[in-house]
Computed example of a mutant assay.
Amino acid sequence: MSAHILTVDDSASIRLTTRVALTGAGFRVTEAVDGLDGLSKAQAGQFDMIVTDLNMPNMNGLAMIEALRRSPAHAGVPIIFLTTESDAEMKTRAKAAGATGWITKPFDPEQLVKIARKVLGR
């Protein structure tokens, strides 16, 4: 059975790009439009990995990760930031919150697939 990945981004074009790349590699994808939507979907479903933007309305990716990491059910789920942010301090904060990795936009969809395969051991 293929891994199920939750993608969280307020940009429809980024959601499309990530969905096409990941489904093309055989992964199942569920999309969320912001951190609040992502948190709700993550809590309602079971995901093998989460890919999230940082800067979004309603709830940013950092707050979403912090909320997810408080739940034992999500403690070990890999979470990758896919964001325009490249600030070292923000990366440190993200790692402290529980982020597994960081990809800077614009990104190569193949890089995302490689990271997903590596993180998921596939």
Rank of each mutant, 00 (worst) to 15 (best):
M1T: 13
M1L: 08
H4M: 06
I5C: 01
D9I: 03
A12F: 12
S13G: 08
R15M: 07
R15T: 03
L16H: 13
L16K: 13
T17W: 06
T17C: 12
T18R: 02
R19Y: 06
V20A: 12
L22W: 04
G24S: 02
G24T: 00
F27Y: 07
R28A: 13
V29G: 05
V29M: 03
T30G: 02
A32C: 07
V33A: 12
D34P: 01
D34G: 05
D37V: 08
D37A: 06
K41P: 01
A42Y: 11
Q43Y: 04
Q43T: 10
A44F: 06
A44T: 05
G45K: 06
F47P: 00
M49P: 03
I50S: 01
I50R: 01
D53P: 12
L54Y: 14
M56G: 05
M56A: 09
M56S: 08
M56V: 10
N58Q: 11
N60A: 00
L62M: 07
A63E: 15
M64A: 09
M64H: 10
I65S: 10
A67K: 11
R69T: 06
S71M: 15
S71P: 10
H74V: 01
H74G: 01
V77A: 01
V77E: 01
V77C: 07
P78I: 01
P78A: 00
I79E: 06
F81Y: 11
L82S: 09
E85W: 03
E85A: 09
S86I: 04
S86A: 11
D87R: 14
D87F: 10
A88Y: 05
E89Q: 13
E89H: 12
M90C: 12
R93D: 03
A94E: 00
A94L: 05
K95R: 14
A97K: 03
A99G: 02
G101Q: 11
T104K: 14
K105C: 04
K105F: 09
P106N: 03
F107E: 08
P109N: 09
E110D: 15
E110F: 12
Q111Y: 14
V113M: 02
K114R: 14
I115W: 12
A116H: 05
A116P: 02
R117W: 00
R117P: 03
K118F: 13
V119I: 06
G121S: 05
R122V: 15
